[in-house]
Design a binder for these strands. Structure first.
Lengths: 136, 136
DNA sequence: CAGCATCCTACGCGATACTG
DNA sequence: CAGTATCGCGTAGGATGCTG
């Protein structure tokens, strides 16, 4: 039963984190935004509704699995809506919901901060690497 | 050589993504912020300088490995500065740099959006789950 | 006290193949 | 076309034990 201890500790830690996340809206939001592809999908959809295949092409580099998964999550979160046109072959369009559109200004604020300050970050990184680089 | 193909494809995809990330400041910023603990550390440091052990206690739930790793990354990115007081035992303080402080309003904007809208997201989730719940 | 090195497991995600 | 199901690797990250 000693083997359980490790598992138990894991569970405990996970639950602590989950409990935290559950009560903290900003962490949940960050968890969402932080998802590699969510922000890209949002940006891609900002210009208007897009078909699945359009998104796949626009967000070049995303796997089909992740694209679907991302869109599903976003749909579940009420950020995008999914419309199926039962033609042959099927056509599926995604568009931002009002909630999703409401998120865009925030995303742009992030983008703006990044564009202004990321070169400072870059410089800091290089300085740091130079400093600690010579004693490995 | 057929075995290489998979690896090559992986490399290619990874490089596509990396190439993208490398050129896109906002993605880099999101990658940073999205880190589970960065935002928590920033928040913890917003109130002023903190010792390592204080941070460990404040951000309850973080492992020592992740705390150190997070602080290192943030230091490298120029968001926090690290001051060692060579007493016995050692004392290490972390504090926000101007750059780090400059990030706080953005973080607060995120928090604010979350507090306003996350209940909508929550509601959307429950509605979604109710809808798709009965046909597994 | 503040951290680094090691080990090991769970899970994210890409690749692949199959459906309506 | 727009997905779902399955497999397998890579790695993030927690646990543990050692240093100055």
């Amino acid at each position: 039963m000693a083997t359980q201890t490790a598992a138990e500790r894991r569970e405990e830690a996970r639950q602590r984190y989950n409990a935290y996340v559950a009560t903290c809206p900003s962490r949940k939001l960050l968890d969402t935004l932080s998802d590699k592809w969510v922000s890209l999908a949002l940006t891609a959809l900002a210009g208007g509704p897009r078909r699945y295949s359009e998104l796949a092409r626009t967000i070049a580099g995303v796997s089909q699995k992740m694209l679907t998964q991302t869109l599903r999550t976003m749909e579940r979160d009420g950020l995008v809506s999914r419309t199926v046109t039962p033609s042959v072959p099927v056509r599926v369009d995604y568009r931002l919901t009002p909630l999703g559109e409401d998120l865009m200004p925030l995303l742009e604020a992030i983008k703006r901060w990044a564009e202004i300050h990321m070169e400072d970050v870059e410089a800091a990184r290089q300085a740091y690497d130079r400093r600690s680089g010579h004693r490995p």
